[in-house]
Design a binder for these strands. Structure first.
Length: 104
DNA sequence: GTAATGACCAGGC
DNA sequence: AGCCTGGCCATTA
């Protein structure tokens, strides 16, 4: 962004390449983009994305295999809804990383 | 300039 | 399973 424009671009690129029907954790996105340990930065970028962005933010979940949003929030419902629509099984708000994690 | 805040994570207990 | 701790790092106050 300001100090690390290169990291920003790399992370954005990785986010954009997550295929439908798969999910990726914040930490994985950071690692895959060549920025291990910058999971929080990934979160920052996603938070600041404009509504018009085509980045599939809903395919990013935390290392627990769950949404990082409050359980009944608007974002939470939209995220889970979209994932299910892409064929991902969500049981009890949790997603199987074994099955759906995208490793690049 | 410092201090607090997150769409985070791994490890320990 | 849960809860706490320390580390992480750009952004914000």
């Amino acid at each position: 962004m300001h100090t690390n424009s290169d990291s920003y671009q790399a992370i954005l690129q990785t986010l954009a390449s997550i295929p439908a029907g798969k999910v990726c954790t914040y930490g994985e996105v950071a690692k895959l983009s060549g920025n291990p340990g910058k999971a929080r930065y990934v979160g920052h970028i996603l938070k600041k994305l404009p509504q018009t962005s085509k980045i599939p933010w809903h395919r990013v979940i935390n290392s627990q295999g769950a949404s990082s949003f409050p359980e009944n929030s608007e974002h939470f419902l939209v995220q889970i809804g979209r994932l299910e629509q892409e064929g991902i099984q969500v049981k009890n708000g949790k997603i199987s990383l074994k099955e759906y994690l995208w490793r690049g």
